[in-house]
Structures are given as C-alpha cells and as structure tokens.
C-alpha cells in the first residue's frame, strides 16, 4: 500500500477548512477557535459557525497562537498582541529581504 501515490487536497489561499477540521488540525476545541475569532487573531466571521471556512494562512496563525499560549502560559489577549508584533517583524524582515538587505547582516 505504501507504494501507492497519494493525492491530497490543497489548502491554500481559499477558505476551505470547516471549523471542526480546523480545530482538529490545531489539536484544539472548536470553542478555542471561536475565541481566536472573538479576539481578532483570526478575521471576524459571521454568527453561523457551521459556515466558517479557513485557509492555510489561518492555520499557520492559529498554530502559532497555540504554541505561544502554551509555552508562555499567556492569555489569548496577550497572544493577540504578541502575534501583532511578530507579524509586524515578519513583514519588515520580508521588506528588508526584498530590498536585498538582511536584518541580521
């Protein structure tokens, strides 16, 4: 069986994961995902949770939030601030990289 070629589905820039799938991929509860939406770590969505869909960038963001929350024993609000700052650093580093400059160089 291991020789069979596996074909996966692509999770990219379009919102495809349901909230249950998304929570499972984060090893978390749906309730926790709703908290991320509530504090704005994930973009606001409508009232109908069953209609929520998520993309690859949402998953990267939520998994980062889960790590920070656990490793710093931080509240979700604190994690939201940390993420804002980390994302800002990432953006600036990316601009440096594109300008041919290295932040650590």
């Amino acid at each position: 069986m291991e020789d069979d070629v596996l074909t996966g589905s692509i999770v990219g820039y379009e919102d495809v994961l349901t909230v249950e799938e998304f929570a499972r991929a984060c090893h978390a509860e749906v309730r926790w995902v709703a908290e991320l939406v509530e504090v704005g770590i994930l973009a606001k969505r409508g009232h109908d949770q069953a209609a929520w869909r998520f993309c690859a960038a949402d998953l990267a963001c939520a998994r980062r939030a889960a790590r920070l929350q656990r490793d710093f024993e931080a509240s979700i609000e604190t994690v939201a601030v940390m993420l804002d700052l980390l994302n800002e650093i990432d953006r600036l580093r990316e601009r440096l990289r594109r300008a041919g400059l290295d932040a650590d160089g």
Binding site: E2, D4, V5, I10, V11, G12, A56, L59, A60
Partner: peptide, 13 residues
Amino acid sequence: KVRIPKGIREGQL
C-alpha cells in the same frame, strides 16, 4: 509517495 500538483505555491498545504 505524494503527488505534487502543478501550480502549487509556497506556504500551501
């Protein structure tokens, strides 16, 4: 063994 589809982009899953 995984099929990598044409058009895949960095950061996609």
